[in-house]
């Protein structure tokens, strides 16, 4: 077993376990922390796949920005105590069953996919480097890139509008 394989298995197990912990933790703060671990594991996978740029971006954007945002919200609302009402037991079972079935079906459907050995090899291919991606991004994908900036702008405006305190003449806020 080469080092890549060992790393692959280690990261996979880490990602799955952390993901499971995310959905089973009672405390939302723990969930967030476990989720950060999931992101780190996935970033590790990206490195194994020679996607260095994405690995870094994943950590910066997800683990750094988004998760911090989550933590902020949780802390702000003081939700860290585990007072979440539980769902009906049968409903939970049905949900787990449905998810499991979906997994089963997809695995069964895709288990015969073409196998290409050793795609996770370090040192093969350099497309994941920032120089190459940057060229592609600013040559072929410049228009979507600019559009995504508009998306960000609108998201920002939306967030501000939603987050503003309602005027008292409009008591019902859920429709906003």
């Amino acid at each position: 077993m080469s080092i890549t394989q060992i790393l692959f298995w280690f990261l996979s197990v880490l990602a799955l376990f952390s993901a499971l912990m995310v959905i089973t933790s009672k405390n939302p703060v723990y969930s967030v922390l476990w989720l950060i671990l999931v992101f780190f594991a996935i970033s590790g996978h990206y490195l194994l796949l020679n996607a260095q740029f994405l690995a870094i971006v994943n950590i910066i954007v997800y683990a750094g920005a988004i998760m911090v945002l989550f933590l902020f919200v949780i802390m702000l609302m003081n939700l860290n105590k585990s007072n979440e009402p539980q769902k009906n037991k049968w409903l939970k079972l049905a949900a787990a069953l449905a998810g499991g079935c979906l997994l089963l079906v997809l695995v069964a459907a895709l288990k015969n996919a073409e196998t290409k050995s050793a795609i996770a090899e370090s040192g093969t291919g350099d497309i994941g480097l920032i120089g190459n991606l940057g060229k592609a991004l600013f040559n072929d994908y410049v228009v979507p890139f600019e559009i995504s900036s508009i998306l960000f702008l609108s998201a920002m405006v939306g967030a501000v509008v939603l987050g503003k305190k309602e005027a008292s003449s409009h008591p019902s806020g859920e429709e906003a």
Binding site: L102, V105, L106, A108
Partner: peptide, 21 residues
């Protein structure tokens, strides 16, 4: 919302089953 999501998942399941098998 939860029920809707559950139904959505079940429908997806159904579609996959039909699609693949």
């Amino acid at each position: 919302v939860g029920n809707y999501v559950l139904l959505m998942v079940l429908s997806m399941l159904l579609i996959f089953v039909i699609q693949f098998f």
